[in-house]
Computed example of a mutant assay.
Amino acid sequence: MQIDLIKGHGSGNDFLIIDELKKDYSFSDSDRADLARLLCNRDSDLGADGILFVMKSDHANGRMRVFNADGSEASMCGNGLRLVARYVCEDQGLNKAVIETMKANLQISKQQDLFQDVHTYQVEISPVLFELKALPLNLNKPTLFNERIAELSEELRFTALAVPNPHLIAMVETDQLQIDLQQRLSEKVNRPNKLFPDGVNVSFVKQLKAGSIYVRTYERGVGFTNACGTAMSASSLVTCLTGLNEFEKIIDVYNNGGRVQCVVHRCEGTYSIDLIGNATYLYKASIMVSLDERSFRLESRNDFTEQQTYERLQSEAQQLIENAIKG
């Protein structure tokens, strides 16, 4: 089977985009999982954090399904949604559109460049759920906001929420970022455990200054990533709820892959987040795949030049992180 794809990234969180809007592929869900495990392998000719399948929708401009590198399906992906937003907008000649995701239909739009010549898109992150059963998190309470979990840490305070991916967020200091605490904790809750039976994304968040945060995320099904869009959105919301940042104002969110912006909206007790950031294409490729043999061959590859521009944004962000976090 021949498959055409685009590799791109949002904040360094990289994906393979497979078009099912115009291409007549007939993948089963098992095929999608197998493709993700095969093509996303970092030792292969491609490698990525996951695959974005762009599909037809009965009631939106397109539909996004996200399969992680381990073959699991994610209910949402903010960085991936920006890539799908760009793909659909350019394909259909639009500046605004609606994308169907597993849990919601989300508004997306093209925006002014976040950094000179960096393709920038805004995507809606919602719904926001605080009920622990939405993650799920097995604790004898309905919600968890800025509280300790004795089984995980005696010092950290956590907030749990789903957007709709499950997130566990801790505000930390610099010294807590410099040790392996996050890795040990994240691996614990993403192995078989009683607290998080389905695993959870774990983010450590450091306030840099008013309106500016650093977020590092261990993503379930992936591990540490350069950035996780829903995690940055959820982290921004938590900083607003704790009074560190303000609702309806731009928050600059720095990550190991670069920088995005978030705006947190509150309306009658409900929340949504706008995630604004790059949608950068790396290359187009054509591959020949045999799922029966669990193998593929790279037939052709044509590189874009956008990464050179994005690296200027990334360099600026990494310099700030280096000064503020690593000392």
Rank of each mutant, 00 (worst) to 15 (best):
A285S: 06
A285I: 05
A285C: 01
S286I: 03
I287D: 02
I287C: 00
I287L: 02
M288E: 13
M288Y: 12
M288P: 00
V289C: 04
V289I: 07
L291Y: 07
L291M: 01
D292N: 15
D292G: 14
D292I: 11
E293I: 03
E293M: 11
E293S: 12
E293L: 13
E293Y: 02
R294T: 05
R294N: 15
S295H: 11
F296W: 06
F296N: 01
F296H: 03
R297D: 05
L298T: 07
L298V: 03
L298A: 04
L298S: 04
E299T: 12
S300D: 06
S300K: 11
R301L: 07
R301Y: 05
R301E: 03
N302G: 07
N302K: 13
N302P: 00
N302L: 12
D303M: 11
D303V: 01
D303L: 11
D303W: 08
F304S: 02
F304K: 08
T305V: 11
T305I: 12
T305H: 12
T305S: 12
T305C: 07
E306F: 01
E306G: 03
Q307S: 09
Q308P: 01
T309Q: 13
T309L: 10
T309W: 04
T309K: 15
Y310V: 08
Y310L: 07
E311V: 04
E311N: 13
R312Y: 02
R312S: 02
L313F: 04
Q314A: 12
Q314I: 00
Q314N: 11
Q314H: 14
S315V: 02
S315Q: 12
S315C: 09
S315G: 09
E316G: 03
E316V: 09
E316F: 14
A317E: 06
A317R: 02
Q318K: 15
Q318A: 07
Q319I: 11
